[in-house]
């Protein structure tokens, strides 16, 4: 079976002030249709660059893709013309942003932002949807992320919503155009632990319910254990270990992975 998303030997470098730094070194990973995959690593390990390269939002320059391929549904995104690529971005593959406080435009209502995204997604895909149908779709998606009063949320400015609600709006944003692949960038990290747990559960439920493929990017191994069946561990721009999540937790092969696992706080207050 071929994977829905297959990253093969991806290398990316950044050039700043005349110095070239390799950020991704021949990264390969697969996300099969409907699977829940995690990519873990500490800050600066290259997770976000991987994600941005997949989404096609890497700022170039300073970044440069030195080699590799990203297959989505059998087509290489890196050689795809921009027009074709745009048809996938935010639609077939979309993304849950990390920070609910800064990822929503403060001066527009939730409906304004979600409606605009949907409008342009429809236009790119040649779909016809009236303003009324668009509104209905936005309200429907807000209801799917368990908003009690979608009408009110849609009419609100971000500042009027709590962090948890804003994070759910970000999930709704990602679900608008019925994606097949969802990339989640440490969702809920900016929230308190209880709310984060709720958000992760919601995300997992939705993904399972809809049969979406999920690539969860995180530095938190606790999150990995909860949300994914297969895990890639990343360090300094390289995939250092990968395998079924349970196996990685039981018998980590790499010293780096063991360190990551040891870094997860425990209730007993003791480890090793």
């Amino acid at each position: 079976m071929t994977a829905l998303l297959s990253v093969q030997n991806l290398s990316v470098s950044f050039t700043t002030y005349g110095r070239r730094i390799e950020v991704l070194k021949s990264v390969s990973l697969d996300v099969p249709e409907g699977a829940q995959i995690a990519l873990v690593g500490e800050s600066g390990s290259g997770k976000s660059v991987t994600m941005k390269t997949i989404m096609g939002i890497l700022p170039q320059p300073p970044a440069k893709i030195d080699g590799g391929a990203i297959f989505f549904d059998g087509r290489d995104l890196l050689t795809l013309p921009e027009r074709e690529r745009l048809k996938l971005r935010g639609t077939a593959m979309s993304m849950v942003f990390q920070d609910p406080m800064s990822s929503l435009n403060p001066v527009f209502t939730i409906y304004d932002q979600l409606g605009t995204i949907l409008k342009y997604a429809d236009r790119r895909l040649g779909r016809n949807r009236s303003g009324k149908e668009r509104k209905a779709r936005v309200l429907d998606v807000l209801a799917q992320v368990r908003m009690r009063d979608p009408e009110r949320v849609a009419a609100s400015f971000p500042i009027m919503l709590s962090g948890g609600m804003r994070q759910r709006v970000l999930i709704a944003m990602a679900l608008l155009s019925e994606p097949r692949l969802l990339i989640a960038d440490e969702p809920g990290t900016a929230l308190d632990v209880t709310t984060q747990a709720q958000i992760l559960k919601l995300l997992k439920d939705l993904v399972t319910e809809k049969g979406l493929a999920l690539l969860m990017i995180t530095h938190n191994l606790g999150v990995v254990r909860e949300t994914s069946g297969y895990t890639y561990v990343m360090n300094k721009g390289e995939i250092v270990e990968h395998g079924p999540t349970a196996g990685i937790f039981e018998a980590p092969k790499e010293a780096y992975t063991r360190d990551l696992i040891a870094a997860v706080p425990r209730l007993t207050g003791r480890d090793q």
Binding site: I57, R89, L104, I117, A121, L170
Partner: peptide
């Protein structure tokens, strides 16, 4: 700002 990157990621 993140929200501009988000708008870009959603193809605005």
């Amino acid at each position: 700002q993140d929200y501009i990157e988000a708008a870009r990621a959603f193809g605005v």
